[in-house]
């Protein structure tokens, strides 16, 4: 008689501290020893991690609110942007290296290309590409409406932008920059390529998920969400697209023929609205944070119940895996930052 072992893993708290601001965004350094944290009131923090402790220093300010932080892959530099429109580049010690101010509009999104060569930013209707020292490389013609999200594909060749009316993809092959529209008449809030680069997905204000098969351009829509879909994450093997519908996790299965006509995998465990979710990079563990002050760990496709759950001290606002998939940083509304390590039991 053989016994199938249920995969089991837990989250182990490895450090926590309280920052003096609401946590909006978190970015890990490549070596996982540092984190940049964006504060909702405008502060930018650099957090250093050691074996036993976390230490933080306030290093910058974006008037009115910081909106995004992004660590440059393979490097010790990171960028922040905010409601003051400014884009700021810091070094590993938190010293200011360069700053740009594209306009008066908010710079809502930052995305480094996977090779770390260029930084894409979205300021109002305008997308810009910057070389690593914040020298402008290319400014795209303003789009029809404000950009809400940016996402690179894995090779770093295509940059997707979400806006009202669909997605726009810029193929970045300087000096050529080609544009392709993926039209969908709804306010689109996210833009995410699958790691396989086969699919491009978006979540919308009116409660749908829309995606395109990139090889053919064919598109498909998944309805039924009770409200806006503003968070999504692809599993490392591109099998699942995780989204949230209030307190339920809704996973669309992109294996085989694709999710059309199928029912999604629905995971239950949270007792209140899910605020943030993230798949492990290159892996299949999923973490979710909900208004029930719970952080849960899942392995979709293998189990239907949470593998582990941790209580937070306030509403979780942001979840970010380290690039090596080993740690999860969780930011909370009251400024608490906690680092968990994924520990496999068997």
């Amino acid at each position: 008689m053989s016994r199938v072992k249920t995969p089991n893993a837990i989250l182990v708290l490895r450090g926590e501290l309280k920052l003096d601001d609401y946590i909006v965004d978190i970015a890990w350094s490549t070596d996982t020893m540092r984190l940049a944290v964006a504060g909702g009131e405008g502060k930018v923090f650099l957090v250093k991690r050691s074996e036993s402790a976390l230490g933080a220093r306030e290093i910058g300010q974006h008037g009115m609110g910081t909106l995004a932080v992004a660590w440059r892959p393979g490097s010790s530099a990171f960028a922040s942007s905010g409601q003051d429109s400014r884009i700021t580049l810091f070094d590993a010690e938190g010293a200011l290296v360069a700053q740009q101010r594209p306009s008066m509009n908010w710079t809502t999104a930052l995305a480094w290309s996977p090779d770390g060569r260029r930084l894409a930013t979205a300021t109002g209707k305008q997308i810009s590409l910057w070389a690593s020292s914040l020298v402008v490389e290319h400014t795209f013609a303003p789009l029809a409406s404000t950009v809400t999200a940016l996402g690179w594909d894995k090779p770093g060749r295509d940059l997707a932008a979400a806006m009202n009316g669909g997605l726009v993809v810029h193929r970045v092959e300087p000096p050529r920059f080609q544009l392709r529209h993926y039209k969908w008449s709804a306010p689109c809030l996210t833009a995410a390529f699958s790691p396989s680069s086969r699919f491009l997905a978006t979540g919308t204000q009116d409660g749908t998920v829309h995606f395109w098969y990139l090889s053919t351009g064919r598109d498909s829509q998944m309805r039924g969400y009770p409200g806006r879909v503003d968070g999504m994450s692809w599993s490392g093997d591109s099998r699942y697209l995780a989204t949230a519908a209030h307190e339920q996790i809704v996973l669309w299965d992109f294996g085989d023929k694709g999710p059309e006509g199928s029912r999604p995998l629905q995971l239950r465990g949270h007792t209140d609205r899910i605020e943030c979710l993230a798949f492990q990079p290159g892996g299949n563990y999923l973490v979710t944070g909900g208004r029930d002050w719970r952080l849960s760990l899942w392995l979709p496709g293998k189990t239907t119940t949470a593998l582990d759950a941790q209580l937070t001290a306030a509403e979780p606002t942001c979840l970010r895996w380290s690039p090596d998939g080993r740690f999860v940083a969780a930011g909370e509304r009251n400024g608490r930052l906690s680092i968990y390590e994924l520990v496999r039991i068997f």
Binding site: N105, S145, T146, Q205
Partner: peptide, 12 residues
Amino acid sequence: IVAEEEIVETNN
């Protein structure tokens, strides 16, 4: 806060 007014239509 300064905002440029942008109208969108949603259909739910």
